[in-house]
Nucleic acid binder design. Structure first.
Lengths: 203, 203
DNA sequence: ATTATAAGCTAATTCTAATTAGCTGTCAAG
DNA sequence: CTTGACAGCTAATTAGAATTAGCTTATAAT
C-alpha cells in the first residue's frame, strides 16, 4: 500500500536479479503498478531510489549488529546453558544459519544485490564483508571459545575453527543462490560437514 | 597489435569491474585506444563482444578441465609420490591455489565478471559453480582419498574434508576480491587454517 | 463548500549511448 | 602503378531510457 515503501521493495528485487545498470525505471514502476513518471513523486531519480535502499540496508545492518552483540553477550552470561552442546544441536544451528541466510527474503535480495554491486562501491564491499565474514566469524569464534573453555571441544584456535565451520556453510549458500535446485544436495553435504566437524573437534 | 583481441581484453576488464550494463562502448574503445565506431569493424554489437568473451571462457574452461583431468589421472598413477605429504607441502599447495585464483589476471577478471553476471544467465551460473565448487571439490576429494588410502590421513569422508579444506580458501579469496588490502591478513589466516586442518586430520 | 496537497496519468522532452554512413589513409597482391 | 579491403576517423542517426511538464482526481483540512 505505502507506495514509497513498495518502490524500494520492487527496486531491490530487480536490482538483486539484474543489477542497477540493467534495471529500467519503467520496470520498477510496472512492478509497483504505476507508470514511470509517477515514481518521481516519491524519489527524485533512479539513483535516489538506490540510495534509499542503501540507507535501509545500513539501518537494518546496525539494528542486526546490535541485536547480535546482545545475543553474544547473552551467550557469555548464560554460558552454563551451553555446557555440553550436542551434535544434533550443532547441526540444527548450522542448518538454521544456512536456511535463514538462504530463505529470508530481505537477506537474500540484499546479499544478491551486494554480490552484484560489490566491486563498484567500497561501502558495499565493506558491508558485504562485515555481514558474511567478519561478523559471523566473530560471533562463532566467541561461541567456540566458550565450548573450548568448558572442555567440550579441543583446545585449538577458535577463530580458525569458526572459519572451518562457517566457510562451508557460506560456500554451499552461494551455490544455492545461483542454482536453487541444488538445495537438497547442499543440505545433505552440510549435515555431513557439521557432524564431521563435531567428530574431529569434540573432546 | 591485434585489435580484435585487445577489445576482448579491455571489455573483460571493464565488465569485471562494473558489469555489462554499466560499461559503455565508448569506454571500451577508449581503453583500446580507438573511437567507439571503430569497434564495429571488429564486432557487430556490444552484445557480440560479450558473447565473444563467453566463447573464450568456454574454450579456456574446457582446456583447463581436460588438463586437470589429466593431472588428476597422473595423481592416481604416480600415487607413490604422495606417500607422506608434509604439512609444509600442504600449506604450499593451499597458498598456491589461493594465490593463483587471486592473482592470475584472467582468472581474476573472469571470476569477477561471473560474480556480477551469475544471476542473469544460467550458463554463467553453471560455469561459476563448476569452476569454484564442483571441480575443486572433485579434484581435492580424489587427492585426499589417496592420502587416506595410504594411511596418512584419518579415514573420514574425503568429500567433506575437501569441502572443509577448500571452502575457507574460497571465502578468504572472496574477501580479497572486494578488499584487496586484506590479503596479508588473509594469508596468515589461511596458513593457520591449513596447519590446523592437517593437525586434525593427519593420522 | 473551498482549497491545498498528494499521487496518479499522458504526452513531451532531454539525455545518453549504441549504431550507421560515409570518408580517408595504408598497405599488400596483382 | 593501381586497386581493393582493412581499419581507422568524424559526423550523423537511431534507439531507448530518464526525467519534466502539465493536467486530473481524490481527499483531508480549513
Amino acid at each position: 500500500m505505502d507506495t514509497k515503501k513498495k518502490i524500494l521493495d520492487v527496486a531491490l528485487t530487480l536490482f538483486s536479479e539484474k543489477g542497477y545498470g540493467n534495471v529500467y525505471v519503467g520496470q520498477i514502476a510496472e512492478g509497483v503498478g504505476i507508470k514511470a513518471p509517477s515514481l518521481y513523486k516519491h524519489y527524485k531519480s533512479k539513483k535516489d531510489i538506490f540510495e534509499a535502499i542503501l540507507e535501509e540496508m545500513r539501518n537494518r545492518y546496525n539494528k542486526e549488529a546490535s541485536r547480535l552483540n546482545m545475543t553474544g553477550n547473552d551467550f557469555l552470561i548464560d554460558s552454563k546453558l551451553y555446557n555440553n552442546i550436542s551434535e544434533d544441536e550443532l547441526v540444527k544451528m548450522g542448518i538454521g544459519l544456512f536456511s535463514f541466510f538462504l530463505h529470508d527474503e530481505y537477506e537474500c535480495k540484499f546479499r544478491k544485490m551486494l554480490t552484484i554491486e560489490q566491486f563498484s562501491n567500497e561501502e558495499l564491499a565493506e558491508l558485504f564483508s562485515n555481514q558474511y565474514f567478519n561478523e559471523p566469524i566473530k560471533y562463532q569464534t566467541g561461541l567456540l571459545q566458550l565450548l573450548i573453555m568448558q572442555g567440550c571441544m579441543k583446545n585449538e584456535d577458535a577463530s580458525v575453527m569458526a572459519l572451518q565451520f562457517f566457510a562451508p556453510i557460506y560456500l554451499l549458500m552461494t551455490v544455492c543462490d545461483r542454482e536453487p535446485q541444488r538445495e537438497v544436495e547442499a543440505l545433505q553435504i552440510l549435515e555431513k560437514h557439521i557432524r564431521q566437524f563435531n567428530r574431529m573437534y569434540k573432546e
